[in-house]
């Protein structure tokens, strides 16, 4: 199975540990990545989209064209990139007038959007192409004793009309993927809350993050598992700031799904870049090692 990976800006530059974890684990699942040249920022669905939707769509379409020319589906690792590229792909393939407008612009650089490929967040590839069974089979050190609070974030699921991934209110895709690697899943009150990152007030996202973290800690989870670098930003770096601000210990390890998968496949914490996180992950590693000693 060959795919064109789209790592975007946040992962490539700010959180390359996520890229390392994806590349190493995907290989163990028989996924083949064909790295294409010429991608830009997706462009981001919050700030860039807020300036001019037509320019936003055109630059997104340019990225899609690169994958179309090569003939591979685009696989995204960030919920923001997923949102932009999926929305653009959806609108351009369903609205001929819009497509014409965008193609007129793309013509200046010799490109044309055709609508021949799909955009998919990598977790959907794991569920639908690789298969949960194969994910399970790749595990050498199941995360037996580790309790994970899942954070879905918004853009993997919504708008469901476009994303077509899962029930947007009661999703199960990540439960399936975390169960496959042996983790115990812990539910908590605020697990469906948005990370708040896109809100441009200072106070609102802080209170949202605070509520998610306190609810997560109360649930007895050892850590949070997520699939988006923007949510990661809000919770990993964010908890340090908030702990200071509220004079309360809100720290809890935050990991990207493919880092968990890597550990379960037998990769070392270093190889999946856990040392690059703001919050200490020693406790999880200790638990993992204990359960396999």
């Amino acid at each position: 199975m060959k795919y064109a990976p789209f790592f975007g800006c946040m992962i490539t530059v700010k959180y390359p540990q996520m890229e390392a974890a994806v590349r190493k684990t995907a290989q163990n699942l028989g996924m083949e990545f064909v790295d294409l040249d010429g991608f830009s920022c997706c462009p981001d669905p919050i700030y860039f989209k807020a300036t001019d939707k037509l320019v936003w769509l055109t630059i997104a379409a340019r990225n899609i064209c690169i994958a179309e020319e090569a003939g591979f589906d685009l696989v995204t690792m960030c919920s923001g990139c997923t949102a932009t590229l999926s929305e653009a792909n959806f609108h351009l393939s369903n609205e001929p007038e819009l497509k014409e407008k965008v193609n007129k612009r793309l013509k200046k650089i010799g490109k044309e959007y055709k609508g021949t490929i799909s955009v998919r967040h990598i977790v959907t590839v794991l569920r639908d192409d690789v298969g949960i069974e194969k994910v399970k089979k790749s595990v050498r050190r199941p995360l037996n004793d580790i309790k994970v609070g899942i954070h879905y974030g918004c853009h993997l699921l919504k708008p469901s009309e476009i994303m077509r991934v899962d029930d947007p209110d009661y999703p199960t895709i990540l439960e399936k993927l975390f169960s496959a690697i042996g983790a115990q899943i812990v539910h908590h009150d605020k697990q469906a809350l948005c990370c708040g990152k896109a809100c441009m007030s200072e106070e609102i996202p802080e209170r949202m993050t605070y509520d998610v973290l306190t609810s997560l800690k109360k649930s007895g989870a050892d850590c949070m598992g997520l699939i988006c670098p923007t949510c990661f930003d809000e919770f990993d770096l964010g908890q340090i700031k908030l702990s200071r601000k509220f004079n309360q210990d809100l720290t809890i390890p935050i990991l990207y799904y493919f880092q968990f998968l890597g550990l379960a496949q037998g990769l070392s914490p270093q190889e999946v870049g856990l040392h690059l996180h703001k919050t200490k992950t020693d406790e999880i590693i200790r638990k993992l090692n204990n359960s396999h000693s």
Binding site: M10, V13, K14, P16, Q17, A20, D35, G38, Y47
Partner: peptide
Amino acid sequence: GRTVKITSLSDRRRKELGLKEVKIV
């Protein structure tokens, strides 16, 4: 062409993780 600036630190981190250099936009 990106939202986040490439720095010597980000380059070093990629290298340490065994990743290739960031491609040009």
